[in-house]
């Protein structure tokens, strides 16, 4: 069984990955919003704010632990061109799915209960947003049995 310091290191590593995913989500939602008419941006703003809040919580947590939380990347490459509202929704799905994977990893590596509570809350809220975005993206399957978890 791993000792306590190893477990803490693994947990902090997972938190750092989640922070990177949240930075990317905050940036990515800017792209999503820019591709949508102003009247359709309310859910974008809500999602961006949610990711920003969690990002800030993560950065504060890592700082409290003596870690040096990474900032956002200088730039990000989009996985596909975002030229329409449907593209924007698909990008939002990608952002939420990416964050979900990171949060599931936090659950798998998490030691402290408050950390796992944070992960559980972020994971659930992200999946609710993802359902909405999958619908907007015209995806035939809008829910997932196991968000953030790979197939066996």
């Amino acid at each position: 069984m791993a000792d306590e310091s190893t477990e803490t290191t693994e947990e902090n590593g997972a938190l750092a990955d989640a922070l990177a995913a949240e930075h990317a989500a905050v940036w990515g939602y800017g792209v999503v919003g820019a591709a949508l008419p102003s009247g359709q941006r309310a859910p974008v703003a809500a999602a961006e704010n949610a990711h920003r809040d969690v990002r800030d919580q993560l950065a504060a947590l890592l700082t409290e632990r003596g870690e040096d939380p990474a900032g956002p990347e200088g730039g990000y490459a989009l996985p596909f061109p975002v030229l329409s509202a449907v593209d924007a929704a698909a990008l939002a799905v990608t952002l939420e799915d990416g964050a979900a994977s990171a949060w599931v990893r936090v659950l798998a590596r998490g030691v402290d209960r408050p950390v796992r509570e944070l992960a559980m809350a972020a994971l659930g809220a992200g999946e609710v947003r993802a359902v909405s975005w999958r619908t907007a993206a015209g995806q035939t399957s809008t829910t997932r049995a196991l968000p953030g978890l790979s197939a066996p």
Binding site: L123, T143, L149
Partner: peptide, 12 residues
């Protein structure tokens, strides 16, 4: 991880 993922899926 499994229980958390299932819970999130059910939130969806």
């Amino acid at each position: 991880a499994l229980l958390g993922s299932i819970a999130a899926g059910l939130r969806g």
